[in-house]
Design a protein around this nucleic acid. Structure first.
Lengths: 336, 336
DNA sequence: AGTAGTTAGTTAAGCGCTTAATCTTAAAAA
DNA sequence: TTTTTAAGATTAAGCGCTTAACTAACTACT
């Protein structure tokens, strides 16, 4: 049978309180007894029960992470970064994939409530606000990661999508492009923000983003392919296209190549996210990188603060994305 | 404050035992009291504490999943399938990414021990066997997923890699290819198995896989690129190449195209895993699909059995992979 | 020597549940 | 009517820890 704190205490000839204290470095214990207890713990290979500790200590050192889909490269990387940060801080992560279904969201939130997680990080746009109300009623700190929804009272850590779009726009303009297009996920808040930043950058240079060059899509392979084909079928194509994310960019590149276009000579493409797709596609995809590691760091920090103070500050932290230059955008500026 | 079972009991005018019973559908309770209790639970929005239940009930309904890297598409899909299955069965998953480091493996296993998970699924080849000994000492059921290591006593659920290689070989031969190559991860057991199956299929047709066409690599972008370049630099190239996984296949396709080769006309490629890379690359990658969903199902089933019976059967289940035909392999058979 | 302060450790009360043992009542059997 | 039996509910112990309150033994100081 697994040894308990009683076994250790008996073996060491001290009370369980003493053992507990050396375990947690609380209270005062002489170097001598500490040594002895530690040695016995080691010898018995005793591992304190996190469950029991949670029941008394009121903290489970576990946080719930909700993502829409782990198989999506971007969220996989988010999960990885968060998981990494969590481990560093001594927390474990319960991973929940909502599959974009609010029913799952609800299910999972209930599960997390039951498991008594210390906090929740949501990397998915909430459909149904009701479950979140419960969270806040229960004082479970919530942090929105990479999504921004003001209606849910919580801390927010996200990429500055407007800025991301702006950077992309500015870059393309600097490279001499004047006839621009965008494939965008208008359904998502982040998509609209990217579009708006993009337009803003163009507007500053007096360039108009024509409505017919703004193609709305969703982030599935088939829909993206359709969107790409649609864009390529226009008789007067843009010279450069900004896409909602890397996946779409890669699909656009493939479709363009099939249509006989060379990248970037005949069509420049710039993506978003800097996922592995950007790295392996040929030519390498110039893209806007979300600072995932940093986002994860801030997210954790904010969440832990909320947990400790048991109050949600309601801060919103927006980190700036960064341009990663590869080879998918042609420089027209000297040709001009 | 969060309501406890006491609050519910008091409100309903019954004992906490009664509440516990309606919660768990154990013992006998009259329809009337059940109704009443349920109604109160609902009204108070009471959620039983999983922590307390775990302390008494001896089960946490949580299992640990170790993967080397979630950002790797294949493992992301594994994680997703497992997570999905877990949810269906009322379990939560603690996700652990070892990053291929045995130190992390150890760290996580300790964490999982402390968190008292009911079982562990490992989707990573263990380096250091010591931590696993601890698990089995502690009677924590372990299941190896998609890796096969006999030295660790546990159940195993994996893809039949030998068969996968065999299927790939058979297919290429059927398509008329005679000069074959393989880019393989020899360091990994699965890689060696795939190679051996591949060779077996060729041998049956009297075809020899030349040693110089067997390129050893590891699954990182740079190494894969080098391997691809190496293969392409051989003066007499194979007509078809089987790669250790889809990532490598995609990289090979890109490198080949850069070298002026058309796919599949000048070089046929067949991958392994059927990840998203296979789907989005152009031309679509013919590949060997691991039956991830099914693997996850079996894995869970086996693990739950072990948990219930608190004994590890030591079964090994090997599911056959399946060929997914896309467009990256040229049919030479009628040209011949 | 007497009192206060420190230090090291102990006692005991929970935390929120599950469950075996027990009790109560009313219906069925004798 | 008395005895069984079964159904429905309660009591209470205990899961493995944390922590506030307390005690005992020193040390330091007037």
């Amino acid at each position: 049978m697994k040894p308990t704190i009683y076994d250790v205490a008996k073996e060491a000839g001290v009370s369980i309180a003493t053992v507990s204290k050396v375990l947690n470095n609380t209270g005062r214990i002489s170097e001598k007894t500490r040594k002895k207890v530690l040695e016995i713990i080691n010898r018995m290979d005793y591992h304190p029960s996190g469950v029991a500790a949670a029941l008394t200590g009121k903290k489970t050192f576990t946080i719930g992470v909700l993502v829409p889909d782990i198989a999506n490269t971007f969220f996989a990387e988010v999960a990885r970064a968060l998981e990494n940060k969590a481990r560093e801080m001594g927390y474990a992560i319960i991973l929940c994939a909502t599959d974009y279904k609010s029913e799952r969201e609800r299910e999972y939130l209930d599960l997390l409530l039951k498991k008594q997680v210390d906090g929740v990080i949501m990397a998915t746009e909430p459909n149904d606000l009701e479950p979140f109300r419960k969270l806040s009623e229960r004082q479970v700190p919530l942090l929105l990661f990479s999504v921004d929804q003001l209606s849910v009272a919580s801390n927010v850590v996200t990429t500055d999508n407007v800025r991301g779009g702006y950077i992309a726009g500015q870059y393309l303009v600097k490279k001499g492009h004047r006839r621009l297009g965008m494939i965008v996920e208008r359904k998502r808040q982040s998509g609209r923000a990217r579009l708006s930043g993009f337009q803003q950058a163009l507007a500053e240079e007096g360039i108009d983003l024509e409505e017919r060059f703004i193609i709305d899509t969703r982030s599935t392979i088939t829909e993206a392919r359709q969107a790409a084909q649609h864009l390529l079928s226009l008789d007067e194509k843009p010279t450069a296209v900004f896409t909602a994310n890397d996946l779409i960019a890669v699909i656009l590149i493939n479709e363009a190549r099939k249509a006989g276009l060379r990248i970037p000579e005949d069509l420049s493409v710039i993506g978003f996210d800097n996922t592995i797709h950007a790295e392996i596609v040929d030519p390498g995809l110039t893209t806007i990188a979300q600072p995932i590691e940093e986002l994860a760091s801030y997210a954790f920090h904010q969440l832990l603060q909320s947990i400790e103070r048991s109050t949600m500050a309601g801060h919103r932290i927006m980190l700036s994305p960064e341009l990663i230059e590869r080879a998918s955008v042609l420089d027209l500026s000297n040709t001009k």
